[in-house]
Each structure stands twice: as structure tokens, then as C-alpha cells.
């Protein structure tokens, strides 16, 4: 049974050169967005080891958002391309073991796109609400 007061827990890995700054931008421009995400700063979206993502979901995160620089803007040139391949494969992995691939999302958000950061977060939180809690959480989130 889904608890009425349940709020999705989202882990967001944000690249420091773009999306993390984008999140800051959203904050300093006082754009409202849901407070469901724990944002973790990484040096590049390519630094997000697939293991981090699996571990987050195993530990009952309801969704994982990876946010990195737009193609062409990665400070390490190809980090975000690598991430795009890894995320596609990870989604397939999740599907094969019976977890909804939609729980993993990849977005490109630049440092100037505070607005996009907020919109992405809203849309993702809504999508996860439709999916319900992580099935590993046994039907209800931990307090």
C-alpha cells in the first residue's frame, strides 16, 4: 500500500561544471522546485560509476537523476557521451531484473539553465509519483 504522505526520494548526481551550478542558479534565482532530491556533486557525469546508480536503487532510492553538460560542453570532452551509453545499458539492466527503467533519468543541464533544472526535477518527481515507491522498499518508504 502506498502511504499517502509518501514523497519520492531522489538521488541526483550533478556535474559541478554545469548542472550543479545550474541547481545553484535555480536556488539563487529562487525558482521553486520539489525538495525530493539529494544532490551529489561530481566532477563530471562520466565520474558516475554505474555501481553508484545500482547502489542507490538497491538502497531504495525511488529515482536517480544524472545531470551533466550538454554534448560538446563536457570539460573532459567525452565524459557525457560515455555516460549516455552507460545509462542506456543500465536502463536495460534494470528492465531485465524487473525494475522500471524510468527510475533512472539522464538530463543535460548547463550552468545557466536554473530553470531547466527546476523543471526537470518537477517532471521527474511527478513521474516517480506515478510509478510509486521503489518496489524494494516493500510497499512503503522508510521513515
Amino acid at each position: 500500500m502506498t502511504n499517502k504522505n509518501w514523497e519520492p526520494k531522489i538521488v541526483c548526481f550533478a556535474c559541478r561544471w554545469c548542472s550543479y551550478a545550474g541547481a545553484d542558479m535555480a536556488g539563487t534565482s529562487r525558482i521553486q522546485y520539489p525538495a525530493n532530491a539529494r544532490v551529489i556533486r561530481v566532477n563530471c557525469s562520466g565520474r558516475v560509476d554505474p555501481q553508484f546508480i545500482l547502489r542507490a536503487l538497491k538502497l531504495k532510492a525511488d529515482g536517480v537523476l544524472i545531470a551533466g553538460c550538454h554534448f560538446g560542453d563536457c570539460h573532459y570532452i567525452s565524459g557525457n557521451y560515455q555516460t549516455s551509453r552507460r545509462v542506456a545499458l543500465l536502463k536495460e539492466y534494470l528492465k531485465e531484473i524487473g525494475l522500471e527503467p524510468e527510475r533512472l533519468r539522464l538530463e543535460w543541464i548547463s550552468a545557466a539553465e536554473g530553470h531547466k533544472f527546476a523543471e526537470t526535477m518537477k517532471a521527474f518527481v511527478n513521474e516517480i509519483k506515478l510509478l510509486g515507491p521503489n518496489p524494494l522498499a516493500n510497499g512503503g518508504p522508510e521513515k
Binding site: 562520466g46 554505474p50 545500482l54 547502489r55 557521451y81 551509453r85
Partner: peptide, 20 residues
């Protein structure tokens, strides 16, 4: 390493040709 697939997926991401 906990998950062998995670490691392989990580490797697969980076062995593809750089030129997009």
C-alpha cells in the same frame, strides 16, 4: 567491486570511438 555488470557497463561506455 560489488557488481560485475556495473564494471562492464562502465568499461563499455569508454571503449567506444571518441568521435561522436
Amino acid at each position: 567491486v560489488e557488481d560485475q555488470a556495473a564494471k562492464m557497463i562502465g568499461a563499455l561506455g569508454s571503449i567506444v570511438v571518441q568521435d561522436p
